[in-house]
């Protein structure tokens, strides 16, 4: 029961903290800008992608539609969302330590594991809401403004054109995997938050780790070949696999496995660290 109350408390704190709305506001603003840009000059952007095909072929039908707009938005924003997530979740432990409220909380009859898990759960729910809002803005508003249609996706091995009726479930799958990827960010930042007594440190550290791993992941150097598949950043774009044809299920399963493993690792490290932590502030 205390775990339920604690989770409720954490959600109330997140809901009433102004910082929590930065993420939603940022997504709204960024999506608004992208939608405006696509409405104003979306076709030229698409032409840039399809230019070499259009020398020989012509695309009939509504290429610039809500589904493509949503895909473009996701592709552009999914890199930035981790910062918005870490901004809130990286603060969940260390922010309380800095405020002194962690000391107040830990004098209550709640176990450290309960408190930590309630923060993970609340962080997960916040992350889910961010993904949901992103989905609403990208798919919902995108389809409202641009209408439905087949989705043309440019992968490194060519164009894939997916039919309208075959898209929504792919978005749902993609959002689930994207959520898992962002949940990993949330777990990482909460884990780092256990090591710190100030709010900024874990947020900056989370972004630094994402940056470092992304660079290692994109450097086409054989020495990183063995570790690249193990980095969680490598699998953060696994949501994109839902828009390939055929869907590389094995690859998606591997990505989910790696992301889940990272979550378990981060939660495990957090529990151990938080259990040993002396609340001295």
């Amino acid at each position: 029961m205390i775990f339920f109350h604690s989770t409720r408390n954490e959600l109330i704190k997140i809901a009433l903290k102004p910082r929590s709305y930065l993420g939603l506001a940022a997504i709204t603003g960024l999506v608004g800008i992208i939608l405006f840009a696509l409405m104003a000059d979306g076709m030229s952007m698409i032409s840039f992608v399809t230019a070499s095909f259009e020398q020989t072929l012509r695309f009939e039908g509504k290429v610039l539609n809500g589904n493509l707009v949503a895909f473009i938005i996701l592709q552009m924003l999914i890199v930035h969302i981790p910062l918005l997530v870490a901004l809130v979740t990286g603060d969940l432990i260390s922010g309380e330590a800095a405020m002194g409220t962690l000391r107040m909380l830990m004098t209550k009859p709640i176990t450290r594991t309960q408190l930590l898990m309630s923060k993970f759960l609340a962080g997960g729910i916040y992350t889910f809401l961010i993904v949901l809002w992103l989905g609403f803005m990208a798919v919902g508003i995108g389809r409202f403004l641009f209408g439905p249609g087949d989705l043309m996706v440019l992968n490194s091995d060519g164009l894939v054109i997916l039919q309208e009726g075959d898209i929504i479930w792919r978005y749902m799958g993609a959002f689930c995997v994207a959520f898992l990827a962002l949940l990993t960010i949330s777990s990482l930042s909460i884990c780092l938050s256990c090591f710190s007594d100030n709010s900024i440190g874990p947020i900056v550290s989370t972004m630094a780790i994402i940056l470092l791993f992304t660079i290692i992941g994109t450097l086409d150097v054989p020495v990183f070949d063995t570790i690249r598949p193990l980095l969680f950043t490598t699998h953060m774009a696994a949501w994109r696999s839902f828009f390939e044809d055929p869907i590389p299920w094995q690859q998606i399963k591997e990505s989910i496995g790696i992301l889940v493993a990272h979550n378990v690792l981060f939660i495990g490290v957090s529990v151990l660290t938080f259990h040993r932590k002396d609340i001295t502030v």
Partner: peptide
Amino acid sequence: TIDVKKFKIPKGVATDINRTSRQ
């Protein structure tokens, strides 16, 4: 029947960062 030799995928637009092996 069409010639596809001229088709090129624009680099930077279609970067699959989740690719774990080099193609």
